[in-house]
Design a protein around this nucleic acid. Structure first.
Lengths: 195, 195
DNA sequence: ATACTGAAACTGACCGGTCAGTACCGTATT
DNA sequence: AATACGGTACTGACCGGTCAGTTTCAGTAT
């Protein structure tokens, strides 16, 4: 089989599917629609994916992989844990801003995340691990207190996801990043002095 | 006349629907299934709800109303903002622990939350407002710094929702509450001298 | 008590639209 | 020549919604 060609076609399908699934619900998206938008024959879609569900999960995996790639791209200099967290928050917000509701898609239904297709949970954990690493390093550097990195990562990601981007301006992101990391590190309590 | 009877039937339907929708996706849930579980004729369901969607939203509204009721039940004494937040976190975690994944259902797809049926967004905001009130009061009491209450409430609720209860023990909740409120108020940064 | 009545509540077999998946063909690519 | 493709027409399972028939029950008569 022609490798390069095939991969291109696969990419086209996934791209069209991403757009569709990012905008609408699984059941609202029609394969016919994906095919049309992508300029692809419906039969071809089924040459690459056995079922609609397969395509759906492949789309999610691709999204998570892209996000992970963004988040783990090498940094210019060695940066502090706080900066790392800022970057994660920034990249994620921007990513979800662009991908519209792909977020919902990715983090909807944690049950599926755990029980269904292989690879999903693994991908999710890999992103979570990036946050945990930053937290662990912060603890080691004695910048953070000795929190449970797992729980803390959950809380941090929860905050990022808690932001409802839907009716926000695109350039509100930077302020939101500051707010998230601010609250996460020093909280909202008024404790300017030592405590 | 047979009002009591009728209301009972309605309640039965909503209860069966809640269980079904809490466990599965909208499209995975069949009306036949709800009818069977509830020991109700399928036609009867349609006597009370015009469409499946109507039933679905009624179920969500009922869930949100119950949660709101729990959260706004009168407190024995006047309590501090931090205690209020603790209580909100506790009640919500317990609620979602019991209702299994009703959480997903409630907070899935913020887009629908905003554009679709009346009452939904309003209900959501009402719960959000409880958090905001606690934060505002904390600011007024000068216990909290002057954060934007709206954003802060989003972050707080994000944290609560960020916790994945799915594979956790039921009595881990109290520790999680402490963690959430701890991070939210004082952050994870290592303050001078403490711990 | 018992039987009757009509209306409302209820039921579940059935209908019909929708779409995932398939079949096929004429064309393009290798 | 062989394979992949776009496009389109087709099939059939699936499930939301319907409705003709059944049950329930308050009221009334016997």
């Amino acid at each position: 089989m022609a490798r390069v060609k095939t991969d291109e076609k696969l990419e086209e399908i996934l791209e069209a599917a991403s757009q569709a699934f990012a905008a609408k619900d699984f059941h609202q998206v029609l394969i016919d629609e994906i095919a049309e938008v992508g300029g692809i024959g419906k039969g071809t879609v089924y040459r690459y994916f056995r079922t609609k569900e397969d395509l759906y999960f492949a789309t999610i995996l691709r999204g998570l992989d892209r996000l992970h790639e963004l988040l783990s791209a090498p940094q210019p200099h060695e940066v502090s844990p706080v900066r790392r967290l800022e970057r994660i928050a920034r990249e994620m917000l921007a990513f979800f801003w662009n991908q519209q509701s792909l977020l919902m898609l990715l983090y909807r239904d944690e049950r599926n995340l755990s029980t269904r297709r292989g690879g999903l949970r693994e991908r999710h954990d890999r992103i979570m691990k990036l946050v945990q690493q930053a937290i662990v390093e912060g603890i080691e550097r004695r910048e953070f207190r000795g929190v449970d990195p797992f729980v803390a990562a959950e809380l941090f990601l929860g905050m990022v996801r808690g932001i409802n981007l839907f009716r926000r301006d695109g350039d509100a992101i930077e302020a939101l990043v500051a707010e998230i990391v601010g609250v996460f590190t020093t909280g909202i309590a008024r404790t300017e002095g030592a405590r």
